[in-house]
């Protein structure tokens, strides 16, 4: 039974990986588009999980990095004809720079105050996207972002583009996985559990948080680059408060502090949104219910629920039979 508990998540991850690799050539173009979109949001949710799940910092401004990455692509490709690698490098650099500045401001606070400062910081990016018309085209957004150019193979088709995003997702996953399983990542968890104890042990708490904050921002920008390419359109909605909260939902719904959870959460939300929208216009009503339901029924997320269920199953046979 013990081995079953240990193996179940790995088996599930393996099945998911095989599906992501092998399924796309056989699904409809609608489904393929949804899977591509879900992978992008999954990257974004994983990047936020580094903050929320591993250091315990809930950010209300994570959409800012999505927007910084996406706008970099939008501006560079439509106005300067930039190729994929340039857009990617600039997108990540801009988001990392943004996080480096924001981190200086935001990391002075924790808890509610951290939420509020990141909200204000996120709004500055939204404000620039909305009003700095000469750079961002304001409310109209930037349309006509082409598919990536300058890669050794052609990714203009939906299927090759999907695999490009899948490769990006794999890179993001491996990088973040390495980070959270490194001594650095363990230190982050230590900070989440007890900041004062880690400080007493001689760890530079602020610096650890700061580095993680910048990594999360850069990873968010990385996702944003692919969002810009996927959507072909960049607008202030990418930087909205509602978008930031939705990323938080994906992490919480899947299960924070697991990396797999946010991926699951992103897939559930993206698929649910698009499938439900076919049948009804009342998607927001349902999304609202998902928000509330997550907190009421699955505060530790789907992964947390599954873990509890597995543990309960494992424990069940050990319970003594009720005596008559």
């Amino acid at each position: 039974m013990e081995t079953f508990i240990r193996r179940a998540p790995r088996a599930a991850a393996l099945v998911a990986a095989v599906l992501l690799l092998a399924l796309p050539p056989f699904v409809s173009s609608f489904m393929l588009s949804l899977m591509t979109q879900a992978l992008v949001w999954a990257m974004l949710a994983m990047s936020l999980d580094l903050l929320l799940g591993y250091i315990g910092l809930a950010s209300l401004g994570h959409a800012a990095y999505l927007a910084l990455g996406a706008y970099s692509v939008g501006i560079l490709t439509t106005r300067h004809g930039a190729d994929f690698w340039t857009s990617l490098a600039v997108g990540i650099a801009v988001a990392a720079l943004g996080a480096a500045v924001f981190g200086l401001v935001a990391l002075r606070a924790t808890g509610v105050y951290f939420l509020m400062i990141t909200l204000a910081l996120g709004m500055t990016v939204w404000g620039l996207a909305n009003r700095w018309v000469s750079l961002t085209s304001g409310d109209n957004g930037i349309a006509g972002v082409p598919r990536p150019r300058g890669l050794p193979w052609d990714v203009s088709g939906a299927l090759p583009f999907y695999y490009l995003v899948l490769v990006a997702f794999a890179v993001a996953f491996v990088v973040l996985w390495t980070v959270v399983h490194s001594p650095f990542g363990k230190t982050l968890v230590g900070i989440r559990e007890s900041e004062s104890r880690m400080r007493t042990l001689g760890y530079h708490v602020w610096l650890h948080k700061y580095i993680a904050f910048v990594i999360a921002g850069a990873a968010g920008g990385f996702a944003g680059v692919f969002w810009g390419y996927y959507n072909g359109f960049v607008s202030p909605a990418d930087a909205e408060l509602a978008t930031s909260v939705e990323i938080l939902l994906m992490v919480a719904l899947g299960g924070r502090g697991t990396l797999f959870g946010p991926v699951l959460g992103a897939f559930v939300i993206v698929l649910l949104r698009n499938v439900v929208s076919i049948y009804t216009h009342r998607w927001l009503l349902i999304l609202g219910a998902v928000y509330i339901g997550t907190i009421v029924y699955a505060p530790e997320g789907i992964i947390g629920m599954a873990r509890d269920w597995l543990k309960a199953r494992a424990r069940a046979p050990l319970r003594p039979a009720p005596s008559p």
Partner: peptide, 26 residues
Amino acid sequence: FLKRLSGQELGQVLTTMGFALIFQDL
């Protein structure tokens, strides 16, 4: 809902956001 969520910022944000979306749609 809310009185049970004291001290849980994430829970508060998500629950109240859920209500905000429901009210928006209604």
